[in-house]
Design a protein around this nucleic acid. Sequence first.
DNA 1: TAACTATGAATGAATG
DNA 2: CATTCATTCATAGTTA
Lengths: 177, 177
Amino acid sequence: MEPQNRHPNEDGGSNQAAGSSASMLHRESRTRWIPTTDHIRILNELFYNKGVRSPTIEQIQRICLQLKWYGRIEFKNVYFWFVNQRAREKQKKKKLTSDVQVPKQRSGLVGGSIMEQRGEDHQEIKTLPLFPIHGEDIFGHMKTTSDGGGGHGDGSYISLELSLSCEGKAEKSFRSR
Amino acid sequence: MEPQNRHPNEDGGSNQAAGSSASMLHRESRTRWIPTTDHIRILNELFYNKGVRSPTIEQIQRICLQLKWYGRIEFKNVYFWFVNQRAREKQKKKKLTSDVQVPKQRSGLVGGSIMEQRGEDHQEIKTLPLFPIHGEDIFGHMKTTSDGGGGHGDGSYISLELSLSCEGKAEKSFRSR
DNA sequence: TAACTATGAATGAATG
DNA sequence: CATTCATTCATAGTTA
């Protein structure tokens, strides 16, 4: 289970370059980061021996900068690596410690007031798409009761009649991986 | 970093069709909100096109009410969505706090979001280990290096003196309108 | 090739 | 609001 045994590419140099027999050959395959052994070695060194668990942005940048020497790597790769290491370390421990512990019940939610608005249910009435329910839009006129944010130019009624029947364009949101 | 295949669910009810991997098969015991494509579309519309960044309680309630027509959703879902959207937008927008001077491979890609720092490089340098490979320094103190010469003839110098003292975080701007 | 496993990546939710 | 956690999705690489 230990994540130290991954050997996608050996040697102390290039990585994932030996593609000779494989058929899938992408010019610039938008594939995910494949850490080199040096990457792993250094990252593990930091994580386990140095006790670096949650490096700051600056630290990640520095680490990334150094690791670039051993192969292509980006900021987010380092960031995610630590996130995943922490998560899976904990996850591993949890499984090993299959002890009967009372559920921590760490809920509590934010604020604990409006957040509890559980409107989940009896809402399957997919009958009529009357969007402007009140005649005013979602952002018709409201008073910023506790909007510490400063209102960001409020009062701007936003007509949100956009999704009633949008089917022509499969826009896939704003994502595009 | 842009996903797209994230939300397997559909407003119609279909659920994760790709039945290839048996690694996941959950009943409706799911706790976490899984936004539908309509949810995402509308929320993105509000966030990006309408400039809604920090909706008030009333606004969130209204948005939530509308979105309920497109699938199960609660107040907190909308709330968290905006919180996360703001945070991640900012995270990606956060510019480099320190220059990233990597030997070669700087093909003109400067700036950009911190997460977007795509290594434009496409070559495995891997020829001159500027810093101790034994990784005893990433977060330690490698001030004792004998790099007095500091030869940076070809611009391939990486002065890494990673220290845990990284201040200078004044990137607190980016107001939302 | 399908199934499996390890792990990179994304994101809803939570914490401080 | 900045960070972090938790869960899930996606996929490289391996195995049968």
